[in-house]
Write a protein that binds this DNA or RNA. Structure first.
Length: 494
RNA sequence: GGCGCUAUGGUGCAACGGUUAGCACGCGGCCCUUUCAAGGCUGAAAUACGGGUUCGAUUCCCGUUAGCGCUACCA
């Protein structure tokens, strides 16, 4: 038996500037798997492409992972600092005969057009059919020692290609897609080491996964087709391939790859928009994975407990923002209020509305008020937009609310009477406010709702708010009376 | 073009040979009501198409179609 059966997994982003939601989901799956199994998560930055290797780009990813709550046990490691290992592995494969030197000029990127001319495709009688032409190996593969030496003498740059067997099959195990088998004849002689001495992804990923003793590779399904090449490298290096688990891709609403056109694609933008990390995790976890029953709202510990590769789907999923927002409402509303206080505090600070007393002497008030507001919130920003008046006297009267509830010209008079009645209350609580308000409405000969709605606009500036008398209690007697008087003055000045 | 993967309401998932095809989001209606939410009840909405296999297919097989991925000296 192996010394340790604890899995080792890794998340290996390339530093393209920010953490994409697809990458975030991959990171989360790795994290959930590691936590569930009591294994180890390693963070590795795949930055072999020197052009795009900028430290600040890595930073954005680390910040986003931290926000997401995905932490790692080892790393971050940087491939850009491990070049010697890859070169040594390439030379080893070359020396063993599993690879060969290639002196061809690098083919320019064709721009994705692989279609052959029509007549050529239809000409199937030809001995050199289209297929044979497509997979024609680089001529260097079969060059004689003399020819090779000549090329070398010319001083041509040398790349190392993998000498893919012409026959047979390559197999591997995928925890999501099942046992896989591909014809070696369908695999081209891919480059391991560029003529610049920089390894390709195919090589570096395998060398690192061997070196880091990775047991399960959980990554996007876009890597599924290239996996046989990597398995070939494992064998050439005398290593046992790990278990693969390819997770389906996340697409935009039009079923194409998620891009800016579909709205925000970076995790950071969701953080900025006022989503809670736990809501984001819950949502992401269920994109391409399910428990098997119909569980949806699962807090992170439950996600960890229930996560399993066997529940991962094979179909691409579409990123549905509406559902994400629903998850956010759940996490804004269901957990004990203490849990969301820090997030609301941060939001208030961002808006310049935070007062230190709310974190100390008035903490109970703050908690009660947040609890009062949160049933109607979808995003953290709601606390500083429509609920702004709970935290500052500096607010305006919403135009729509005015038109809806301040139409009647008797409103100003009624609000004035209410201000007086409320100011005279010896006790300030829900029922007292309720009784006083209804008494004023009755005296004025209007339905209670008319006064209540008008009052709401006066004290919070909006048509939308928590139940009025609870709101009054939260705001305090002095403030409510002052705001009513201010509203009267506003109405009379028109 | 080649190779591969996938296919259940608009979306995310269930049903892994036998169910009136279930749940959630979203959408509509009703209840509640002091605005708006929340909550409760409820409605519309799906097995891509065509062949098999089977007593019986959403489920297994084949084909078609569609989408996606890979096919770079990108990762």
């Amino acid at each position: 038996m192996p010394v340790s059966t604890k899995p080792r997994v890794r998340f290996a982003p390339s530093p393209t500037g920010y953490l994409h939601v697809g990458g975030a989901r991959t990171a989360l799956f790795n994290w959930l798997f590691a936590k569930h199994e009591g294994g180890t998560l390693i963070l590795r930055v795949e930055d072999t492409d020197v052009e795009r290797n900028k430290p600040e780009l890595v930073d954005g990813i680390l910040v986003a992972l931290k926000w997401l709550g995905v932490d790692w046990d080892e790393g971050p490691f940087f491939q850009s600092q491990r070049g010697e290992m890859y070169r040594a592995a390439a030379e080893k494969i070359f020396a063993s005969g599993a690879g060969y030197a290639c002196y061809c000029k690098p083919a320019a990127y064709a721009g994705g057009d692989y279609s052959a001319p029509k007549d050529e495709v239809e000409d199937e009688g030809d001995a050199e059919g289209p297929k044979a032409a497509k997979l024609a190996a680089c001529p260097c593969r079969d060059m004689s020692a003399d020819q090779l030496a000549a090329k070398e003498k010319e001083g041509l740059p040398r790349a190392i290609r993998f000498k893919t067997p012409r026959t047979g099959v390559t197999t591997f195990e995928d925890a999501v897609f099942g046992p896989r088998e591909v014809q070696n004849g369908d695999i081209e002689d891919f480059v391991l080491l560029r003529s610049s001495g920089v390894p390709t992804y195919q090589l570096s990923v395998v060398v690192d996964d061997i070196d880091m003793r990775i047991t399960h590779i959980i990554r996007g399904a876009d890597h599924l087709s290239n996996t046989p090449k990597q398995v070939l490298i494992y064998h050439a290096l005398g290593a046992q391939p790990p278990i693969f688990a390819h997770v389906p891709l996340i697409l935009g609403a039009d079923r194409t790859r998620l891009s800016k056109r579909h709205g925000a694609t970076s995790v950071g933008s969701y953080a900025d928009e006022g989503f809670l990390p736990e809501a984001f995790r819950n949502f992401l976890a269920l994109l391409g994975w399910s428990t098997g029953d119909d569980s949806e709202y699962m807090r992170t510990p439950e996600l960890v407990e229930r996560f399993s590769l066997s529940g991962v789907s094979r179909t691409n999923a579409i990123f549905d923002r509406a559902k994400l927002e629903w998850y956010n409402t759940q996490y804004l509303q269901k957990p004990p209020v203490e849990e969301i206080l820090p997030f609301v505090e941060a939001e208030l600070k961002k808006a310049g509305l935070w007062q230190d007393a709310w974190g100390s002497s008035e903490q109970a008030w703050f908690a009660r008020t947040v609890d009062l507001i949160r049933p109607r919130t979808r995003l953290l920003g709601d606390f500083t937009t429509w609920a702004r008046a709970f935290f500052t006297d500096d607010f305006t009267y919403d135009v729509e609310a005015r038109e809806k509830f301040w139409k009647d010209e008797k409103i100003a008079g009624m609000l004035g009477k209410l201000a007086d009645a409320l100011a005279a209350l010896p006790e300030w609580n829900h029922d007292a406010c309720d009784a006083a308000s209804r008494a004023v409405a009755a005296a004025e000969g209007v339905k209670a709702g008319v006064l209540i709605n008008a009052t709401r606009v006066a004290i919070v500036g909006r048509a939308v708010a928590p139940p009025l008398f609870d709101t009054m209690v939260a705001l305090s007697q002095d403030r409510v009376v002052a705001r009513l008087q201010r509203a009267v003055a506003f109405l009379n000045s028109r």
